[in-house]
Amino acid sequence: MQTILRHAAAAVLVAVATGPGMADDFGDADEGARVFRKCQACHAVGPDAFSRTGPHLNDLFGRRAGALDGFDYSAGLVRMGNDGLAWDFASLDAYLENPKAFASDTRMNFVGLKDAEDRADVLAFLRQYSDSPANIPGAAPTAAPREVELSDDILALVGDVAYGEYLSSECLTCHQADGGATGIPAITGWPEEDFVVAMHAYKEKIRPHPVMQMMAGRLADDEIAALAAYFGGL
């Protein structure tokens, strides 16, 4: 309940901050059909669609992440689904913008759609193939419009590796220093920017995991940069 309220509140704030024309505005479905050609090598949608390299995209809106029966998703997407992520405009928009930043281990080998309009269009196109989408505009989305908006200042911070090493000790109670991953993902050797984006996404409670939301929630920007620098070098 609380989470839903919090997300709703976040959505309102974001809508105010970004003004009309962004966020949960679907674009032009016809244009989207054109954009979708980039996806067609792996994904199908429509009456006879079935999963191929990528899962089929019928009834995508409202579907739990990583939950299509019989499809072999990355552990990260499955975990996000278990943590409560159901695809809606906002989360798909974030995922499509930078798939690896959203789900670092995703098997979707796609650089992303950097243009917000392309994403809005392709989502309008896909939206036609979902019967009862959870996130029609006006309803509370389950995630903010982008995975996370970070200022250039935050992205430009140079991490203090020694501080990162100290802070990392807290992470190592669960995550393994040698990159081993059993039930809890590896966090070593990530590109620093992905690490920073992921941590801020937890901090702003866009990524759904409660432990990580709490851990990231109390890290300052420079602390996140320090951790990214330290773990990035392992």
Binding site: N82, T182, I184
Partner: peptide
């Protein structure tokens, strides 16, 4: 599914903290 994921996470935690 969430309860199962939580259990699996605890197995990961055990490995992590023991290491």
């Amino acid at each position: 599914a969430l309860r199962k994921a939580t259990y699996e996470e605890s197995l990961g935690w055990y490995d992590g903290i023991s290491a």
